[in-house]
Amino acid sequence: MNLILPFVVGALVAAGLYMMMRRSSIKLLIGFALLSHGANLLVFSAGGLVRGGAPLIEQGESLPPAAHADPLPQALVLTAMVISFGVLAFAIALVLRTYRETKTDDVDKMTTTER
C-alpha cells in the first residue's frame, strides 16, 4: 500500500531521539519537536492511507465517497498537534527559566533542584 511513511516516521524518531540525548537544552527542544512529528505521522498512518478521499461529505449526501480516509486518526492527530505545540511552548519557557536561574543550558549539569 504505502512505503514512504514508515521510512519518514523512522527517520523522524531517530533524529528526535538523538537530539534529545544531546547536552544543549535547545537541541532537546528541537528533538522533542521532531519526535512529535514522528508520533503524529505514526498515528496518522495507523488508520491506513488513502489518496484523494478526504473524510468530507458532499452537500446533500449522507455518506462520504466510497474510498475515504479514516476520520478518527485525523481527529486524534489534530488535537495531538495542538497539544504538542502547547507542551513545546511550555518546555521552551522552562528552558528559558532554567537558563536564567542556573546560567547554563547544559542538561548534564541539571541534576538537582538545589541551586
Binding site: P6, V9, V13, A14, A15, Y18, M21, G48
Partner: peptide, 22 residues
C-alpha cells in the same frame, strides 16, 4: 553511541510499521 541507538530505534520502528501496514 547515541546515533547508533537512535538509528537502531528508527530502523526497528520502520520495519515494524512496514510489517503493520501489510
Amino acid at each position: 553511541r547515541d546515533a547508533l541507538l537512535a538509528g537502531a530505534v528508527g530502523i526497528v520502528l520502520t520495519l515494524l510499521l512496514l510489517q503493520a501496514t501489510h
